[in-house]
Simulated scan of single mutants.
Amino acid sequence: MKHVLIIGAGGVGSVVTHKCAQARDIFSKITLASRREEKCKAIAAQIDYPIETAQVDADNVEETVALLKRIKPDLVLNVALPYQDLPLMDACLEAGIDYLDTANYEPPETAKFEYSWQWAYQDRFKKKGLMALLGSGFDPGVTNVFTAWIAKHELDEIHELDIIDANAGDHGQPFATNFNPEINIREVTAKGRFWENGDWQETDPLSVNKSFDFPAGIGPKQIYLMYHEELESLVKNFPSIQRARFWMTFSDNYLKHLEVLQNVGMTRIDPVMFEGKEIIPLQFLKALLPDPASLGPLTKGKTCIGCVAKGTKDGKEKTVYVYNICDHEACYKEVKSQAISYTTGVPAMIGALMMLTGTWRGEGVFNMEEFDPDPFMDALNKYGLPWNVTTL
């Protein structure tokens, strides 16, 4: 009998709640909390299982601690914004509750994400006998587990790693982001960064691209080099990696709109004065763009996310590709969300399941690849994200 508190009622929070309700033998009690409780109630109404709801400001440690002490969950599953990771970790420490998130901390005032802030909590969680699992989404998350599985079963040493994320879906909107617009645009407009020969290399945003031929009928797409947080933990935990890169697809239409928005200053994250008030242009833009949760019934096509790893097996060179194909329309039919939310929400639920069943346990702060990948890989097949492996 385990009680999970899900914080965040966006597209991912909705998927997580649906999927936890499907695994009710593990998640015997589910509470969904957000700044706006009416969003939680709307999600709960879609599910044929009792979901309790609550209001909480995840930036307010005191308020969150009060909620935790009142409802006494076994785990906090954080699918709020990355800005709120540290306040929620602080609240979990004070209340004595385990913690899980899907994306690492990002300070609101700087478009920069790295694990240093959360890794700094290691001793505090260990001292309290608590566990924090970081980045239990798809990328980061499943891609970390894919890498660990490759290292366990397919390659004795990984020398090169390419994480490749394609959204081949179409929502028919002139310009919209498939997850939180503010986080999405901050991420895409940041400098590219990759690991090579023991150091980080930087590139101008989206300046490096190439074609990649995706499976399942998706075909060739342009992929663009970006920085993504899982690279930081993977090169730390797999020191044989000599080069690690992250790539993502973007349509020409998306890139055209983004360029114009950048040129007119709408992607700025510093305050500007407007009619005597300070506003942040990117936050104003977010208010104008479609809510990602509204794209579910509109989106058709597939996603393909996976890892191409090159290394050696029994002294011979070998390249392995492990990937998942996810269909937007099938996701909407199952949980009323498109595949971007689905591919993040399902691994968040599985990570929570790993923790609550004791399959993955430890004291301190952990990244996904630090545990046995096999039970997680089995759960992906069981709960809606089946994977494939091929030798290139």
Rank of each mutant, 00 (worst) to 15 (best):
D57H: 03
P297M: 08
G13L: 02
L32Y: 02
E329K: 15
K286N: 11
N104Q: 13
S337F: 02
Q222M: 11
F146W: 03
R35A: 07
M131N: 05
V65I: 09
L155G: 09
Y342G: 04
A330M: 14
I241M: 08
F246V: 13
K191Y: 12
P215S: 13
M248F: 05
N144M: 12
V235H: 02
V322Y: 08
H257W: 15
G172H: 09
K126D: 08
P290M: 05
L392H: 11
I280E: 07
G135F: 01
M266T: 08
I51H: 06
P140V: 08
F246H: 13
Q118F: 00
G217W: 06
L88V: 06
Y321V: 01
G141Y: 03
E63F: 01
A166R: 10
K152Q: 14
P271N: 10
T319E: 15
G129W: 07
V264D: 06
H328G: 07
P292H: 06
I280K: 11
M131F: 10
T17W: 09
A151G: 12
A190G: 12
M1I: 09
E275Y: 08
A91H: 07
I26K: 04
E38Q: 12
K302W: 06
N60W: 01
K69S: 14
A111F: 08
L380D: 00
L75W: 03
S136Q: 10
A33E: 03
H3N: 08
A216Q: 10
D199R: 15
P73D: 03
L380K: 00
G301P: 05
K336W: 06
Y49T: 09
V79D: 05
C20L: 12
T189R: 04
S233T: 14
G345L: 04
G11W: 02
E370L: 11
H159L: 13
